[in-house]
Simulated scan of single mutants.
Amino acid sequence: MSTAKDAIRTLLNPRTYLQALKLANFAGYSYADQLARLHRGAGVRIAPNVSFRNAERIWVGDGSHLGENCVIWAGNSTGRIVFGPKCLLGPHVTLTASNYGIEQGTPVMDQPKIERDIVLGADVWLGANAVVVAGVTIGDGAIVGAGAVVTRDVPANAIVGGVPARVLGHRPSALVKAAS
């Protein structure tokens, strides 16, 4: 249990203030600076702790919502991320349009990056902790379950889940629900 003495020690420790400056710097380059470069449609809502990279190559469609602690990283030179209208991202979703090579003999960090676009259609919902990798297109109305890792394209209105993600079913149409 923390005591008053511990609290005073923390307040007097210069490392506390150095850490606060580091966090402010991170917020500046991963959020505030990036928002100015981001292409946003009308009515877009973005949690204040979303992390962006290369936002000049990110387009967020009208009415979309990006949840807490999402990581949205476009490629350094070509890989784009495009959201259709009304996309919904739960917390801790990661999209990255860039990946490293994996050849033996060269450290992964020294290999050239492979960049490919990520495209989300209209009305796509990505559940908490979902991951979407470079080169994936997710069709209109698709739902990606929590914790899924999407490594290949997802058809329209499909419900996918798992690692790697696979089709588990499809969203019912309004006509099917009305007939029930």
Rank of each mutant, 00 (worst) to 15 (best):
V160S: 07
S51V: 13
H39S: 15
A146P: 07
V82L: 05
R40F: 12
A156M: 00
S64T: 13
A148M: 04
L175V: 04
P112W: 06
D33W: 00
G90P: 05
G63A: 05
P172D: 15
I118T: 11
V150Q: 07
A4R: 01
G101V: 13
A20I: 04
V60R: 13
A174T: 11
V163T: 09
K5T: 13
M1F: 05
A165Y: 10
V167A: 02
V144I: 12
P48Y: 12
L66A: 11
A42Q: 14
G121K: 01
A74N: 00
A27F: 01
P107L: 15
L38N: 05
S64A: 14
G121W: 01
T151Q: 02
A156F: 00
L12M: 12
H39P: 09
G135V: 13
A24V: 09
R37I: 06
G67K: 00
V119F: 00
A4W: 02
I159F: 04
L21M: 01
L168M: 05
V93H: 01
L168C: 04
A27N: 10
F52D: 01
I8R: 01
A24R: 07
I81L: 04
L168E: 11
S98G: 15
R40T: 15
I81W: 01
G105D: 08
M109P: 00
N49W: 07
G169H: 04
A4K: 02
V163F: 05
L168Y: 00
A27I: 04
A97G: 12
G147W: 14
P155M: 07
A97P: 01
A148R: 03
W59L: 08
I102L: 09
A128P: 06
L175M: 04
V149W: 10
A156L: 00
D6W: 04
G162W: 09
K177L: 15
K177Q: 13
I143Q: 14
K5W: 06
I114W: 06
E56F: 12
I114P: 00
L126D: 11
L175F: 02
V144L: 10
T96A: 15
